[in-house]
Design a binder for these strands. Structure first.
Lengths: 122, 122
DNA sequence: ATAATTAGTCTACAATATAGACTATTTGAA
DNA sequence: TTCAAATAGTCTATATTGTAGACTAATTAT
């Protein structure tokens, strides 16, 4: 078990970096959340509405994981009703580049995939 | 509902290409499978062993989806015991580029993520 | 007094994934 | 002959995960 810069214990789950990163951002929601934060700081409910079909529980969990991994920051303002803002952290910012390469590919190949895809319940 | 080149009906799920692509490859296993096929054609059981912690059912399902979307091909040889080979199709091949950009990022930032990460059950 | 607002949490239920037994068919060994 | 081995899955009972929507606390606006 190792320690980070702040002398906290941290995990080093997989010897394989791909696995380690994918286990976190390779889920249904992480990329969508990061993409939503690309241009703006966002509040919880705004994200919830923007993404549309995520449950509050999953949004909450995914945000916590992303924060814990250093992709985003969470800032609480001492107000009522509460104001909590999520923003990309340095790591999240640097992740935009490969993520957008992926998204660009998706854009370019969207039609090809739709054409290849037969109707089936898979 | 539209038709593809072979005059089959196909789905065009989302107006948003990112969603449409992510719904398919943004799961726990697709990227790992595609990565496994990068250099070699592979058989079912070989993939199962190589990935290690995927259940046969999920491997089977994910392969079907990847095939259905045109990322991979499935070739059955008339032998006993059966021989079924999975390989990257054109779309899967073209997907390697953005995927490897992502993987390279993962490699480069693996340590930073581990350092940022505190031990928690998230 | 009451409603509206926010960022979540909680709970009962629904959907999804897992492990591991099972299948059919042939070859090769005892 | 009879048995084991091999392959590509499927099936089923169980375990894990996700969902919808009610709920909370605190304050402002009506």
């Amino acid at each position: 078990m190792k320690k980070n810069a702040k002398n906290e214990l941290f995990e080093y789950d997989h010897p394989c970096p791909i696995r380690d990163v994918l286990d976190r951002i390779g889920d249904q929601w992480s990329l969508l959340i990061l993409k939503s934060l690309e241009h703006d700081v966002m509040r919880f409910n705004t994200l919830h509405k923007e993404i549309g079909d995520i449950s509050r529980q999953m949004l909450s969990r995914t945000l916590k994981r992303l924060e814990n991994d250093g992709y985003i920051t969470r800032t609480v303002y001492a107000q009522v009703p509460p104001r909590v803002e999520y923003a990309l952290a340095e790591l999240g910012l640097s992740f935009l580049k490969p993520m957008n390469t992926l998204i660009q590919w998706a854009d370019e190949n969207h039609e090809a995939i739709c054409r290849a895809r037969k109707i089936q319940n898979l």
